[in-house]
């Protein structure tokens, strides 16, 4: 159980690092929001899932799972709100015609 938890946490840290690299490398707001909303969510899910496994079955595991579900539901909403504001404020995303 503990080994599985540590493995999950390490996989999650890998995804979190990839998301951080993505925010540094990608060119504009719209592409960066992909990294922040998707890869970051999966990393957070893996790390929190590993911590929940480490707690063992019980009320603590359920509480961590509530935070996890909240993250899955809210992260895309935050990314959507941000880039909708960016779109309505007049920013245009880079497209493949004009790189």
């Amino acid at each position: 159980m503990v080994v599985l938890a540590i493995g999950l946490i390490l996989v999650g840290v890998f995804f979190l690092v990839v998301a951080a690299i993505g925010t540094l490398r990608l060119p504009d707001v719209f592409s960066r929001s992909h990294a922040v909303s998707l890869t970051d969510s999966l990393g957070a899910i893996c790390v929190l899932g590993g911590l929940a496994l480490y707690q063992g079955f019980g009320i603590n595991m359920l509480k961590i799972l509530v935070v996890l579900v909240l993250l899955i539901l809210l992260n895309p909403v935050i990314a959507h709100a941000t880039i909708r504001a960016a779109y309505r404020a007049g920013l245009k995303p880079q497209t493949k015609e004009d790189p």
Partner: peptide, 8 residues
Amino acid sequence: SLHLTKLI
């Protein structure tokens, strides 16, 4: 996420 990881 795997797809995006490959891209990044």
